[in-house]
Every structure is written in C-alpha cells, then in structure tokens.
Design a binder for these strands. Structure first.
Lengths: 224, 224
DNA sequence: ACCGCTGTGACACGACCATGACATTCCGCG
DNA sequence: CGCGGAATGTCATGGTCGTGTCACAGCGGT
C-alpha cells in the first residue's frame, strides 16, 4: 500500500510493528537510529518516529525531515504529557501517538495522514498472499516485508502461477507461457525453476506453502 | 489564524474551547448540533466534531462533511476505545482526540492538520524524490539544489520513467513513448540513454538509486 | 566549422539458465 | 509390508544471454 519508514530503537516494538504493518500491506523499512532513518527518507511515504532515540533524538530527526521535504511524520512515544504532545506537533509532526499503541490504531492514523498527503495515484497492483507480497507493477516480491531477489525466469514463473491461484498448470503450459518455446521433450527445467523459487519464497521448501506439487499434473499456486 | 467550526453539544465544553481557541487567534463558530454544523461548513477551515450529538450523530456528520468536500475534521470524544479511534479515522476524520483535552493540545493538533490541508494551495508541477527535484513545468531537474543539465531525449526518458514511479517499463514501451518509433530490432539505444541519465543524476552510477535495472524486464524509476 | 546530442556497434563481465546425472519421494501392486 | 518403477527434488556446470560501458560517427543547430 505504502512505504513506511519505522524509526524505533526498541527491537521488540520495532519487530512487532513491522510485522503488523507488513500484514496490512505496507512496505516497512525498520531502522533503529535517527541517522539510519535520515538516510532512508527517499524510500518512504510516511515516517513513524520514536522520540527516545540513541544519538540524535527524535525532535532533531523530525526537524531534519521537515527541512528535507514534506514527508509526513507520526511521532510514537511513551511520553504522553500535554507539553510533549504540543512540542511534538510544533516540531512538525503530523500526528502524535502514545505508546503502547494497537497496531491497527497506528495503521488507521497512517492512513488518515496519507489520505491528506498522498496523491490520487495510489499503487493498487499489489497482491497479498499470506506473508507474501506481490507487486505486478514494480515487479517486487517480498516476504514479511523483506524483499526477495528473483531471477527473471523465476519471476515470470511466479507471476504466471499466481495469476491463476488455485489452478493447476501443467509443465507444458508453463513452458509455453513462461519460456515461450512449447515443445521440449522431458526436461527437469520447470522443476528446477520451481525449486529455485521455492527456496527463495518458502519458509520450508520441503513443505511448500505457496507452490504446491500436484503429482502427475503440474503445479498449483496458492495457500489452500 | 483560521476559522474553526466547533460542533459540541455540551455547553460547558463548548464555551471553554471556544474561549481558548479564540485566545489563540482563531475565529471560532460554535454550534450544538450536527444540523447546525452542516449548515456552516462553507465558513470553516477546519471542523472540531464531537461524536455524541443529539439528532444526527458525529459519524454521520463526518461522512456528510467528507461527501461535501475535503474539509479537515478533528473528532473530539470521550470514547477512547481503540475500536472507536479506528472507526473514527476510517469514517474520514483527520485526527481523533479523547476528552478531556487541554486546549493547547487541541490547538496544536488543529495547526498540524491545517499545515497539511492548507498546502494544496502550493500545488505545483514540482516533484521531489529524495534529493532529486523535478519540475515538469519548467523542465528543470536539480539534485541537492544543483541544477542538472539533461539533453532533450534524456529529459524525456526521465520524465517518462518518473511519471510512473515504481512501475517497471520495458525497453519496448520506452521506445514507443520516448522515441516514438516502435520497432527497432535489438538496440542498446535505451540502455545507452539510461546510462547517460544515470551519470548525471546518480551519486554512484554503478549502484543507481533512481533508475533501477530490472533484469529481463526493463527499467524502473524510484527507490523501492 | 564547431560543438553537443544521438544512435550504433564492439567488447567485457557477470548472472542466469538449460542440461543431465543422481538422490529422494510417492504410489500401486504383489 | 516391502518392492519397484515412475515422478519429482536436488545439484553442479558450462554455455549463453542480458546489461554496462566505451568510443566513434552522423547530424543538426548556434
């Protein structure tokens, strides 16, 4: 849905929010310091910023983000004092959320902020299958927010299989649509490619979850 | 400072907030029902909306305001349950504040919301991608404030790629849209031009940040 | 005529892929 | 219950393809 830059030094909170936001379909980049965050600004649509950071503190990070552009910022902190809220918003934050926060509340606030700042050009070519995200426009595949590097043929194979979730495609069909040369005796070609894709997107390639073998027929995509 | 429409049925809260916001320099119009509020929308820059209202309730008022335009809405309510917050934001609110609220906190949130919504006035053809600035009106491209001299074809290529950030464009597509002659066997034309643009806008052309190669498919603009 | 832009070809290099041999699993049948 | 064959998984490797890179020549404009 959108690219979230999460700056949070507590690893537990960081991982929890990353997982939750990823599940909501966001591309989350999580870093643990302000310096790292400032280096990643170009890749973000919105920043979720903890105030208590090692090194340069959250307020300073906020000011620098403001100076660099008009990227929306949601402050996330344990300090819910009125003075803190006012100071945070005056520093340029778009919203101020007090920890602990329910992920879906945070997600709703992210959406509310993006509604204001995002252009109507929303990217909607993303598909979500469990913890697998598949963007047919940018041709990016990611798992748990982690981008997966697929080779061209592997990517074409995955796209082909996922374009018909649940349907079994024979090796012959795949050879025609993915490799474009229809006839090729018996060959482990498709098998080998499927194997490579599995090794990259499956948690346990021996027990595939996304690309399943249908013995005697071919392969099928999709968690069923 | 700005015109605030306060919709709140409790007279004590209403008068208190009106006084406080007026002191901050806002022009406050305070009404006690949704019907009255909806009649006053034209004169407001931002709405502070109580959810517990007699007659039509706050959610319905919110939806009607949304339907009427994109006037920013701050929900103000005693119900701070997570579900309520999510529901309120989903209904189209820009912010959600739980009573009791310090007037200056509310004022800071009003300012934060207005900072976003007043901006569309400066809607220009200037786009910002990281440290790259792209002005589609004046056709000026600059990096870190430094103007970049691009040749006509290079500029068209960059504009084409950046008009669909994140989307992968094939060499064929680029030949058609940038060069306007569709068919041209195999040619390194696009590659060469991409290379030239990279050498001018990328900090490290060997590891491009803005124009990325998607092996086997084409090129993609924008950091992902 | 100069100069910058643009298209083209040659070359290098790395990544990828087709291939075949071998291991493993699955399934039916004795 | 075990066996055998077929289908599939796994792996290493050399060849091939895609891309980066460069130099150069035509061309058009100032």
């Amino acid at each position: 849905m959108s690219r979230v830059l999460l700056i949070e030094d507590d690893q537990g909170v960081r991982d929890g929010l990353r997982l939750a936001l990823t599940r909501q379909g966001h591309a989350v980049r999580a870093v643990e310091s302000g310096e790292q965050g400032l280096a990643e600004l170009a890749d973000a649509d919105v920043v979720v910023l903890d105030l208590m950071l090692p090194g340069i503190d959250g307020f300073e990070v906020c000011r620098r983000i403001r100076a660099a552009g008009n990227l929306p910022i949601i402050m996330l902190t344990a300090r819910g004092d009125d003075m803190d809220v006012v100071a945070g918003l005056e520093a340029g934050a778009d919203d101020y959320v007090v920890k602990p926060v329910q992920p879906r509340v945070l997600e709703a606030r992210i959406r509310a902020v993006l509604r204001r700042t995002d252009e109507p050009a929303q990217r909607t070519d993303v598909e979500q299958y469990g913890d697998l995200t598949l963007d047919r426009a940018s041709l990016v595949v990611s798992r748990n927010g982690e981008q997966v590097g697929l080779a061209p043929t592997e990517l074409r194979l995955l796209l082909e299989l996922s374009s018909a979730p649940g349907r079994v495609l024979s090796r012959q069909q795949l050879l025609e649509s993915v490799w474009e040369h229809g006839y090729l005796g018996d060959s482990r070609l498709v098998d080998a490619c499927v194997q490579r894709v599995r090794s990259k997107i499956e948690a346990d390639p021996a027990r595939p979850h996304y690309i399943q073998t249908v013995r005697g027929f071919g392969y099928r995509f999709g968690p069923l």
